[in-house]
Design a protein around this nucleic acid. Structure first.
Lengths: 345, 345
DNA sequence: TTGTAAGCGTTATCAT
DNA sequence: ATGATAACGCTTACAA
């Protein structure tokens, strides 16, 4: 009776084989369903597995098989409400198909992202899902030569091993601004996101197109740059207010920006939507709980996450996966109203 | 296993050794700094590594060495603003010490959590950090026999391989309620979290103690149960309002609950803080952007995440790590005021 | 200092 | 159907 202390001795496949009186190949076959095995040995092995509480060593398995059933997921910020939804979708779909995500954060920094991508490769992931980011497209193209890549939220020339999924940012922004115009607004401010960020650029384009189609001249004093975070929205809105330009509505480039803008408005006693209407983009879970609930563009973030994982699964099966740009839907809540009493400033 | 054509042939340690004209052990030594090597061979190897852009296969390395430098992190919800902060802290500290996190979600479900923990073990993580959850303490104790465990936000009997970190929930809640009482409030409602959730229970205890110390009788019609999420706060607050009980302040068991409560109040045209004061717990990043900014208890979530990773590092070094319960600080913002004009209902 | 060789725990090939 | 046995890519005694 050896009841040893210390780290319990590891139960290996070989030990199970010995206990069940079969070869290790047989055990392996049973565990993986790789081939038919006599019912008798099957039972013997299963019993041994139970008895020793055997768990295959994933490392060894992967080293031998060349597959890890692990998908690298390069996010930008593990704690962001937006990326969180993507991650959740990816994780749910991945685990449902027996795969696991391996998350890494790039912090919107091309160098970090590249380092993380190398790291994922060193860990032998079967594929990589990339969420936004600034890493060099050429690098990504070369990278996709080694493992398939699914890119979320960044349009790149697709290839058989590099597929892009996203939403129609231009259309969403166009719908927002058109809606605002229909409510009677003509002086519509816009707080954009990072420069060079494709989502931000496309939303600005949609904004301009809607204005143009309504015959409203573009006025760049109505544009402020944010950073896709609350802080940027706050500051941008303050600048807008300080500048003394008049406007009756604000289109924030994403919901987080709108949250910040909303605080700035509150601080200046500008009522929403009575004095100014406010619209965001994304429809984060928290937007339902803004005071008042935020009118925004619903982007099916979670679902896109699932689609990404599914696209990866198909890529891995060797199927062709087309680029997809999804339409997006305006959700009217309570931060928008027909142009009314007093305009800001 | 024959290497087929297609994806670039893998660069192995052996290839580098050959290219540099040394043995593979020498390459290994150089890469790991395991032993002194002649400067000449050092250079030759480094050059070959560069030239072939060699990356060690982490799987093989781990299989051989028995270490993975990977720490399993069992979270409950990858997309939660609260867990997000913990994860960010853990990730930052872990990567700074050359380790990587491996995230898995338990969804507040003991069975899921246990499955995930087994999975992490099969992946040979060097240790595990557990965030809340309901998995059986006895199971965890046995688990910690195999790899060290750091537990966040759940008080368990510590052991040399199982350390707990947390905050003083009771004290935080006590401070909240005492502050409210100092502002003149005597009818203070409370929206709790999940039953059996230790944080929630401790906060309720703190609430009761503060009341008792001020000679205010406990009234259970002022207590509603939430679920630590916005939805629960909304519903609980509606019930409170519908019940017609009078109160001038609400202590929500966490910030998300407060967000929900705040929306219910808005819907009923109850002004915050003019008509009722509202306090949360956690100080999530978003609480600064509530309208108005939320008075709450600051819990250094991110820092605790870092501490957890640090505690794990020390555990791995064989050091003893004490249980730590941190004090917590009330942050007065703008949802609380001296009891004023009209009380709700 | 450097090299040889024996693992690490699987899967996969090839006989039988 | 089953069992040897050779990979998988690296670390680490043990020798030299």
């Amino acid at each position: 009776m050896k009841k040893s202390f210390g780290p319990p001795e590891t139960v290996t496949l070989a030990k199970i084989a010995r206990a069940a009186g079969v070869s290790s190949s047989t055990v392996s076959r049973i565990l993986n369903g790789t081939a038919r095995v006599s019912a008798e040995k099957q039972r013997a092995v299963e019993e041994a597995v139970q008895r020793y509480n055997y768990r295959p060593n994933v490392l060894a398995r992967s080293l031998a098989s060349g597959r890890t059933d692990t998908i690298g997921v390069l996010t930008q910020d593990i704690a962001s409400p937006f990326y969180g939804e993507w991650l959740r979708g990816i994780e749910d779909e991945l685990t449902q198909t027996g795969r696991s995500p391996l998350f890494a954060s790039g912090h919107w920094n091309a160098a970090d992202e590249q380092r993380q991508l190398e790291n994922l490769l060193a860990r032998c992931v079967d594929g990589v899902i990339v969420l936004h980011g600034f890493v060099d497209p050429d690098y990504l193209r070369a990278y996709s030569e080694r493992v398939p890549v699914v890119m979320l939220g960044r349009p790149l020339d697709p290839s058989p091993r590099l597929v892009c999924l996203g939403v129609d940012n231009r259309q969403g922004a166009y719908d927002v601004v058109t809606h605002l115009i229909e409510l009677g607004h003509r002086r519509i401010a816009h707080i954009s996101g990072h420069a060079l960020q494709p989502d931000s650029e496309q939303r600005l384009i949609g904004y301009r197109e809607a204005l143009a189609d309504a015959g409203i001249p573009y006025d760049d004093t109505l544009i402020e740059r944010g950073n896709f975070e609350e802080s940027g929205g706050l500051v941008a809105m303050e600048r807008l207010l300080d500048a003394g330009v008049s406007f009756s509505a604000v289109f924030a480039s994403n919901d987080q920006t709108a949250y910040g803008a909303r605080l700035a408005l509150y601080r200046r006693h500008v009522r929403v939507p009575d004095d100014v209407s406010l619209v965001g983009f994304d429809d984060l879970p928290g937007s339902l709980y803004l005071t008042p609930p935020l009118t925004t563009v619903r982007q099916p973030i979670y679902e896109i996450g699932r689609m990404a994982a599914d696209a990866m699964a198909r890529l891995l099966r060797g199927e062709a996966v087309p680029t997809q740009i999804m339409r997006v839907e305006l959700i009217e809540r309570e931060t928008t109203a027909r142009i009314g009493t007093g305009a800001a400033s």
